[in-house]
Simulated assay, not measured.
Amino acid sequence: MRMILVDKERSKMKKITIKDIAKIAGVTHPTVSRSLNDSNLVSPKTKEKIKKIADELGFEFNASARRLKTQKTETIAVIFPTNFYHIEAEQFFRMLQKNLIESVEKNSYNVIFQTAENSFTGESNIKKVIAQNQVDGIIIALNNLKKEDIEYIKRSKKECLFLYYKNEIDENSKYFGVDNFYGGYIATKHLIENGGKKIATISCDDEISEFYDRTRGYKKALEEAKIKLEENLIFNRGITFESGFDWVSENKDIINELDAVFVQTDLMAFGVLQGLKKIGLKVPEDISIIGYDDVDYCKYFSPQLTTIHQPIEDLVKKACQELINKLEGKSKKMEGVVLKPYLVKRGSV
């Protein structure tokens, strides 16, 4: 492509238009507009050529005017729980947030993050972003959304999906999640395959579906192996490092009888590893430990933590693409998906 030399003083006096770009590129005005909008109707080669010309001419595409005309904001709201920044949830939601930003911005959309409620007034942030027409679509990433918020979203006819957490109120809502039952099953099965017979699990509140499902998977693996389920070996704790550490000091007698422990979050598992070290038990020589999530820190503990990897990156990509395809009219309806987690073998089993 020939180089375009623009006299700076001249460019200041004359405002570059789409017509100018079309004339230089030898294409029609709609082709320029589609290219700057990153439309799939234009070939990648032509889009690249037109964008390069626009850049060299100092052309600034007025996206705000186009949004006013189309009545679209090209923005997606992601709704997180109010405690997403707490230490027990921070790792997971930071990973979720990173992948959401990448997936949404890759599709030339904007993303805003909100908690479901204003932490001072208790008012619904969901109603606010919809009423002020701030977004085209909504991604819900929390497990206890109020019924009135769900009904408000329905009435607004905004496209919406549930990410990772199921909508227990409306079974017809689009859900993109991970099979936590399968995750709990393969975690426990791996411990059994490595000689575990007396296996405890440390879970959290059974009312939270992800932990309820992981515990069901744990029970299923024991049942298949014809290992008697002992209800006293199922512990419900908080999902913090301290919870795992304290569990060890509070249950020394039981721990001495165990072959293995399935800890249902990595953060708790790190606490368990430290607690076991303090009382003189070696992992995996004396007892095996498996976690859940596969956060970055798993590689840096000693021993490195065997865990269940959640395919968050793939899940977010699929969810965002489905939502954006629906917003842009490329599909008539969204298809939810449930992905299977997988085992990551390291040194704690």
Rank of each mutant, 00 (worst) to 15 (best):
E9W: 05
K12N: 08
I16D: 00
I24Y: 04
A25R: 07
S33C: 03
N37M: 08
N40P: 08
N40Q: 11
S43A: 10
L57W: 06
R67S: 14
R67G: 11
K69C: 01
K72G: 01
E74G: 00
V78L: 10
E88N: 15
F93H: 04
S103H: 04
T115C: 05
S119W: 00
S119Q: 11
G122L: 07
Q132W: 03
I138C: 13
I139R: 07
I139P: 09
I139W: 03
I139K: 09
L142R: 10
N144L: 08
K146R: 15
E148S: 15
L161C: 15
L163C: 07
E168R: 14
N172E: 14
S173A: 08
D179H: 06
N180R: 07
N194A: 03
K197H: 11
K198S: 11
C204S: 15
E210W: 00
R214H: 09
L222D: 12
R237K: 15
I239H: 13
F241N: 13
E242L: 12
F245L: 15
S249H: 11
E250I: 01
E250V: 00
K252L: 13
D253M: 10
E257I: 00
V261Y: 02
V263A: 05
D266S: 08
G271W: 04
G275H: 02
L276N: 07
D286S: 13
I289Q: 04
C298M: 02
C298H: 01
I308C: 06
H309V: 08
P311C: 00
E313V: 04
K317Y: 08
A319P: 02
C320I: 12
Q321F: 06
Q321V: 08
I324K: 07
K333N: 12
V337M: 11
L343Q: 01
L343C: 01
S348F: 02
